[in-house]
């Protein structure tokens, strides 16, 4: 197998080439009339549209990104602030875990869309309702990832801490928490992406701003170009958040930096 590891330069160049081929091919196909622009506009027109929507006095695209991002982050942070402590408790206590597992199993598979009717009934169409949908789509996943991460903490480390004189609380603070943190963070990265899909669903109804709203409205007006701008904006925003998250990981997990053995 060709298992050569690429250095940074090679990775960037290969990636750029791949992207170029994809975008260039798409542009050509539209220009040479192989693809009807009504169904799939050319990348050049999409980018053009994007710039138009992002500039000017109104800059609706930036406003949309801000609105969607605020909904995602609020729902996501709320589910993290509640889900992580609960997950830690569940990970450490088998009784509580057994008691809560059935409820979690019922709620977890429900997609964000399915929460729209109830959330509209109970919370109307304000921002709280949007936060709630993101929350419901993220919370159980945060719980499960945290519980799992907690249970995976090496028992030997816990014994070592107790052996050195740590009380239960001290063990939680100095061993369980930092021990579970790497897996919790990687789980949270996944949940953040899930939260984005929730917000797009949530903005289908009862919204007047946001990337999801922009896409759904564009559909009403048969504006495929705007749909693609919305989709591209989502990708770029999530990518940016991902990079930020990685930075956070590097900050919180200094012992896991590249080059270190474990």
């Amino acid at each position: 197998m060709d298992e050569k590891q690429l250095n940074l330069w090679q990775t960037v160049i290969m990636g750029a080439l791949g992207l170029l081929v994809f975008v260039g091919g798409w542009e050509l196909l539209v220009r040479c009339d192989f693809i009807d622009p009504y169904f799939l506009p050319a990348p050049s027109s999409v980018l053009n549209r994007m710039l138009t929507m992002a500039s000017g006095p109104e800059a609706i695209l930036l406003e949309d990104i801000k609105m969607s991002a605020s909904r995602v982050l609020t729902g996501f942070l709320t589910s993290t602030l509640i889900g992580v402590p609960f997950g830690l408790i569940m990970g450490m206590n088998s009784h509580i875990r057994a008691a809560l597992n059935p409820i979690i199993s019922i709620i977890r598979p429900l997609p964000a869309l399915s929460w729209i009717p109830l959330s509209m009934l109970w919370l109307g169409i304000d921002e709280q309702q949007k936060y709630a949908i993101v929350f419901m789509g993220s919370f159980t996943s945060v719980l499960v990832y945290t519980t799992d991460a907690t249970m995976r903490v090496d028992q030997a480390l816990i014994l070592a801490a107790r052996n050195l004189g740590a009380s239960h609380l001290q063990t939680i603070r100095y061993v369980v928490l930092p021990g579970a943190l790497p897996n919790i963070l990687s789980g949270l990265k996944v949940v953040l992406a899930i939260a984005w899909t929730c917000v797009i669903s949530a903005e289908m109804v009862g919204a007047n701003s946001g990337l999801g709203f922009r896409i759904w409205t564009a559909k009403e007006w048969s504006d495929t170009g705007q749909v693609l701008v919305g989709m591209l904006s989502i990708s770029l925003t999530v990518l940016l958040l991902d990079i930020l998250f990685r930075g956070l990981e590097r900050l919180l997990l200094p012992w896991q930096r590249e080059g270190r053995r474990t």
Binding site: I125, V205, A207, N208, W216, T217
Partner: peptide
């Protein structure tokens, strides 16, 4: 005014 998009049925 604030215009808000709703589904027909909602």
């Amino acid at each position: 005014v604030q215009l808000v998009n709703l589904e027909v049925g909602d």
